[in-house]
Design a protein around this nucleic acid. Structure first.
Lengths: 231, 231
DNA sequence: ATTTGTGTAATTGTATACAATTATAAGTGT
DNA sequence: ACACTTATAATTGTATACAATTACACAAAT
């Protein structure tokens, strides 16, 4: 019984709810550790519990939500260990994607990647960190497409949802990191356009490992702030 | 309304159904491409559609089942490309696990791994291929435990479900591969017990890549047989 | 004061009823 | 015979009713 716009668009209620709740978790509108109530969500979104439950189950499988031993749900907590694990896995898989994409890229693909690279570099030069993140994501997503590796692709998309949430915890502004990230993308682009899969893979792994350091720092600051606030 | 034994054991109906259907898919009782009917399963298992649907959704997310554009479900088809993707990802993640486990392993862990290794080698020497597979899985699972890397662990478990199904397609008997696999495990064990994470990672990757070759061969034979049968 | 028990409310788990969609097959016209 | 409707059945999607579990508050006992 949604007021329309979703029903028509071949997007099932369940999927609409899934994306809606996921958005709220990633944007920390639903904060880490916050308990989740099926009935409450059903009332608020004006739909029955059935699609809510199915959406929540999906989020639970993807570990953005976790189920307590008593069956209650809560938003996944912040965990530095998890962040490190995610980045380690991501580093390897993005490296694989970079390698495969380098082999498969057409001249058109390379042109497209060049455009993204330019946008990233320009954004970094103008200290627009959020744009660096945005076009950076586009760059990576485009590599996923080129590689045609559905398995790695799917895993990476899930990991990226988690990373997006962690990004929200702290201030995005880090101009030094932005400029370094831009440089790294430029180097990766050159390796790809020169058809050097080994180098592309190596640079990509290093790139992800560098952003891990920034992410961990952000989260540590966040956790420290929360400790301070409670004292 | 199950005849009891499941209800009592803290295993929800939904989870029971999930494991039950997954088992049937892995064992190819539910064959690749076979359509799936909610009502039919509900009647057969003597429960309502609700937990069936939730179990099927989970299997869909894990891609053992896929949803056609019209909403109908079917068992995931056989795909050589998917197998290759899975093994490539698995190679990297098992390598990561092997590296981390090498660093973290206690002397007790190493003793345990030594026992598994011995069982694998003995089984291979006696041409008991299924035992090689079984203890091989135990060896790998134990490394997952040692590494404590939940993220990689979860992904690998899902990939392994797919691989288990592919194994079922062809005859397991391949004594040459069994003996090589045993040798590879022995070498990995030595690298781990000598606390050499680089070597452990490298050997693990090679080990997985070697089993990919055997798996692809099995599936190609299977597909060829099916073509022959239909002519 | 702390614990233990008990009744009640809140929440989740499952079953069923109903709505919406899609497939199937029979009929119609050409 | 073939395409095109149209009616009907089969299937999935959603809502709701009910059962089972769990949390909570308050009382009783020590």
């Amino acid at each position: 019984m949604l007021n329309s716009s979703q029903m028509n668009r071949r997007l099932s209620t369940k999927d609409f709810v899934y994306f809606e709740i996921k958005k709220r978790i990633i944007e920390c509108i639903l904060a880490p550790d916050q308990p989740i109530n099926e009935e409450y969500l059903a009332t608020e979104l004006n739909i029955s519990r059935t699609p809510i439950r199915e959406a929540l189950q999906r989020l639970e499988i993807e570990e953005l939500i976790l189920r307590l031993p008593n069956g209650r749900l809560k938003v996944a907590p912040i965990s530095i260990q998890e962040v490190e694990e995610i980045f380690h896995v991501r580093s390897l898989l993005e490296g694989l994607i970079a390698r495969e994409a380098t082999t498969k890229a057409t001249s058109n693909d390379i042109q497209k990647l060049g455009q993204f690279t330019k946008l990233i570099v320009t954004a970094a030069n103008n200290d627009r960190g959020d744009e660096v993140v945005y076009y950076g994501s586009e760059f990576h997503s485009y590599l996923y497409q080129i590689s045609k590796n559905k398995t790695a692709n799917k895993i990476l998309n899930q990991l990226n949802d988690h990373i997006s949430r962690y990004r929200r915890l702290g201030p995005i502004k880090n101009n030094e990191r932005s400029r370094n990230a831009a440089k790294e993308h430029l180097e990766m682009f050159e390796a790809i356009s020169h058809k050097n899969p080994d180098k592309a893979e190596k640079l990509m792994r290093e790139h992800i490992n560098n952003s891990l350091k920034a992410a961990v720092h952000t989260i540590e600051v966040h956790l420290q702030q929360n400790i301070d606030e409670n004292n």
